[in-house]
Amino acid sequence: MNFRFLLELFVTWFKLGLFTFGGGFAMLPLIEKEVVEKGWATRDEILDIMAISQSVPGAIAINTAIYLGKRMAGFVGAIVAAIGVISPSVLVILAIAVYFVQFQENLYIMKAFSGIRAAIAGLITATAIRVASVNFHSKIAMTIIIGSLALNLFTSVHAAWIILLGAFVGYVVYHYLPNYK
């Protein structure tokens, strides 16, 4: 096992863990930047992996790290990526629990955090528009995009069901409309 590669894997996931605020899809722009540019996975593969991570038990960031780590460097890679993505949270929370319980009332932290929250809004919007436009290639795909957006926004249907519904539509189209592109 290549130690330098494992170190790079660890550092990459440590960075992703350190700069992911809000969790879930908010980490997608960062993963794309770090993982796609290194050639570890394509954008489509990352979407697939995040869909899987969202549909099975566990935290999405950890699931995604384990899946990609496993693909890059087997079982050891999965463990290294998982420890990498978890470590920043553990260190920050331990520091807060030990030294600084009034953390959330600190004025400077609140100000910096207001900036970060606004940045996350801009980041996820850019990612959402790009991913939607890439997938806007057929009437059926457009219907799935708008339908799943509306279901998630206006009903309490769990995201995992929405992903399963997309999978079902994908299968039905394949089965009954084999020439549909």
Binding site: D44, A51, G166, F168, G170
Partner: peptide
């Protein structure tokens, strides 16, 4: 089918 569903969720 999953990819556009995820696009909608994002």
């Amino acid at each position: 089918g999953i990819r556009p569903a995820v696009a909608g969720l994002i």
